[in-house]
Each structure stands twice: as structure tokens, then as C-alpha cells.
């Protein structure tokens, strides 16, 4: 069985952020980009299945700039067997639909039985990519798995929906996104980090995926950012840095409001 895990590189969440109106409102963040933390849970779920079954391979699939190789290496260090990185200048500016087209083409090319994704990307936070990719492939989609079981050519998940926990399932191949509470991702050992460098990492450009020009990247984008502005002013509470006196400051605040 072949499992693909879609992984994205995202800006470091802890770093300061600004948006740059001069550069198409692109997000500028200081600090190093990293593997989308939500995707580490999808890798972990794939590895847990692979470790308990015979003949299961796990491939990390990423669309991103060449520099995203570092995040792909992280996926390999965590335990993926190999990786595919789709990089091409023509992919810059892709929207959800364009990204989904690229990932769907890479998935078709790889012939996977199951594709796992994170619940959201930390920067895009669209939550919808699994559905779009599934539609392009004609596969069923199951999102936000809090638990996952794979057996006999089918997959079943438990997930929280508006009316409580529900169970949904589908036959394979299928797309599944996992909640970030499904597991605790492992930390790669130093040995695994070194070993990752020797694992196969295939780099593909757009031509390798046979996608019509204009269907991806800036030209293919069907959702358009028209303007970027400041958020409406928040009612504005006080935020303090704890210097050891925070508890007293909270009590003082609660006393002012007659809450203690």
C-alpha cells in the first residue's frame, strides 16, 4: 500500500509578521520557514499505520519553492520513505484551486492508495484543500479525523461535527485530513536527520505533471486578493508580560470588576 502525505512549508509561526503592500501584499515574516506543524500529525498517522502493517510506503508530497526542500527533509527525518517536491517559478501565486491541481496531478502520477493531509496550513488556513483535491481525482474525502483506521481497502474515521462525534468511512483510494489532536508527532533522532539526506527526493517541475499552462500559478488563480488592510480595532484589553507578578495583576483586575 502506498500512502502519500501532503506537506507544506510555512513561515515560522513565532516570528514577527508584516504584510508588504509593495509586493502584492505578500506576507513577510522574519525567521526560518518550517514544516507546517499540522502536517507532522498526518506524517505520524501514516507512520503509525506503516509500522503496524507490511509493505506500506510513505511518500511526502510538497508543492513549494526549491527552498521548501528543508521542510521535505524534515518529513523524511520523521520517517517518510521518500519525497516528491514540485517546484516551478510558474507556480508562484497559485490559489487553492491551482495548488489542488498540482497536488492532484502529483498524486495521480504516484499512484497512491491513500492521501493524508493536515487539518490546515498554518499560513493559508483554508481547511478546504482536501476536498478540492478529492474532487479533481474523483475520490471521497474525509476531514478532521480524530482517529483513523485503515483496513481491507477502506478507511474509517471518527471526527467531531456540529452534532457530536460521527463516524464516516470510504473505500480506498481516498483523501483524509487529520485533526492535530489525533496523535503526538515524534521527534526525529539525530541519526534519522542524517539518514534523511540519503532518502530519495524527487524534484519535479510543472512540465512533468502535464498541466495546461494558465491553469496554475498567478495566471490560473481564480480567487483574487483585492486589497489588504488593518483589522477593525479590537475592543482592546490589557496584555502584560509575566514578570512574576502576573497573578497579582489578574486579581487586581478581577477585583476592579467585582469578580473576586
Amino acid at each position: 500500500m502506498k500512502i502519500a502525505v501532503c506537506v507544506k512549508e510555512v513561515p515560522d509561526a513565532g516570528a514577527s509578521r508584516r504584510h508588504d503592500p509593495a509586493a502584492d501584499h505578500r506576507l513577510v515574516r522574519d525567521g526560518d520557514p518550517a514544516l507546517n506543524p499540522f502536517d507532522a500529525h498526518a506524517i505520524e498517522a501514516a507512520l503509525q499505520h506503516a509500522e503496524g502493517a507490511d509493505g506500506v510506503t510513505v511518500t511526502a508530497v510538497c508543492m513549494g519553492p526549491a527552498s521548501a526542500q528543508r521542510s521535505v527533509q524534515k518529513a523524511l527525518a520523521l520517517g517518510a520513505d521518500d519525497a516528491v517536491l514540485i517546484s516551478d517559478d510558474a507556480l508562484a501565486g497559485s490559489d487553492v484551486l491551482g495548488t489542488a491541481r498540482v497536488l492532484a496531478a502529483a498524486i495521480e502520477r504516484g499512484g497512491y492508495d491513500l492521501v493524508l493531509m493536515g487539518q490546515q496550513s498554518a499560513d493559508g488556513e483554508c481547511w478546504v484543500l482536501p476536498g478540492v483535491v478529492a474532487a479533481l481525482l474523483g475520490w471521497p474525502v474525509l476531514t478532521q479525523a480524530a482517529s483513523l483506521s485503515i483496513e481491507d481497502g477502506s478507511v474509517r474515521i471518527d471526527r467531531q461535527a456540529e452534532a457530536g462525534y460521527e463516524k464516516v468511512g470510504a473505500s480506498l483510494p481516498a483523501i483524509v485530513s487529520v485533526s492535530d489532536a489525533i496523535n503526538e508527532p515524534r521527534y526525529p533522532s539525530l541519526k534519522a536527520i542524517m539518514g534523511a539526506k540519503r532518502k530519495p527526493l524527487e524534484q519535479l517541475d510543472l512540465a512533468a505533471l502535464d498541466l495546461p499552462a494558465g491553469s496554475v500559478g498567478q495566471d490560473g488563480a481564480r480567487s483574487i486578493v483585492r486589497s489588504v488592510g488593518d483589522p477593525p480595532p479590537q475592543p482592546g484589553g490589557t496584555v502584560i508580560e509575566d514578570d512574576g507578578s502576573a497573578a497579582d495583576r489578574i486579581v487586581e483586575f478581577l477585583r476592579e470588576r467585582n469578580l473576586v
Binding site: V128, P130, G131, V132, V141, S223
Partner: peptide, 20 residues
């Protein structure tokens, strides 16, 4: 949960842009 899946599936099947 269902609405997001539906929106994704519809956008993918019809090749529509999606704003989330």
C-alpha cells in the same frame, strides 16, 4: 465540517475559485 468539505468538492468539480 460538512460545509467545508462540500465547498471544496464543488470548487474542485467545477474549477471555481474559492475564498475561505
Amino acid at each position: 465540517v460538512l460545509g467545508a468539505e462540500v465547498a471544496g468538492l464543488v470548487a474542485g468539480r467545477l474549477g471555481l475559485g474559492i475564498a475561505t
